[in-house]
Amino acid sequence: MFKILEANELATNIFQMIVEAPRVAEACLPGQFLIIRVDEEGERIPLTICDYDREKGTVEIVVQAIGAETFKLGKLKAGDHLADVVGPLGRPSDLCEESVEELKKKKIVFIAGGVGTAPVYPQAKYLKELGVDCDVIIGAKTKDLVILEDRFKKVCNLHVTTDDGSYGRSGMVTKALQDLWDEGNKYDHCVAIGPMIMMKFVCKLTKELGIPTIVSMNPIMVDGTGMCGACRLTVGDEVKFACVDGPEFDGHKVDFDQAMNRMRLYKTEEGRLLLKAQEGDTHHGGCGNCE
């Protein structure tokens, strides 16, 4: 059992938690993820490690409630326990392998969309600790969904953009990137983390601009150790397992359309589970919304 030390709702249905997981905290690096189970009957859900404290033996996660499991998770409070936390899984970000000198030579931009904002944080913080400057673009639908702004301000040059223009710049992250580029920010490395559709369009743009781009893929997973192949995706001509070969890949080589397709694999079935979680045992089909 893994104790939750802190639990906050950052924005509607976006929850931040600090969890006791000494082995994960001891070994993790930016870019890696963990898998949790909320309770003994729970599904295994992968979440990126958003921050960690090796001394306290804790890790931080930020999760958006979108389905049965993540809604259950969002209901937990400080003092509650998770049945399982396993990690760190996946490979650390490539940035962790580069020397400070190499990193300092680069002009790096992170592009964070929605709940993808959280996984960008440890990478920006890691660079800050090495004395490397970076730009971060956070994109959110609207002002209320902008998360972790204060913490980001301490570790990077922050640019916020909202789809509806209610805060910061106006428009999608791709527009913000194009604008910054036109304003003279000639980036030579980009890391994009967010919904697949966002990463796809960021990659389209950065390819035109000639900026090498890393994306963090979040396909459906089961074990997270290379055992099931559920997380496989096509990168270039090769089939890769996101949980062991990734989650970060060269965004210009990822087959996003295939990856987005594969995400829908269990959609109908998940939809049923979500209804059951939200409405209890009141849902028996027949409404025409699900077969």
């Binding site: 089961v222 099931c228 192949g229 559920a230 496989r232 995706l233 089939v239």
Partner: peptide
């Protein structure tokens, strides 16, 4: 076609 939806490894199917 191996990446199509509905293609599984036995490990995934059995683990689930």
């Amino acid at each position: 076609g191996e990446q199509a939806m509905g293609v599984f490894s036995a490990n995934e199917f059995l683990t689930r």
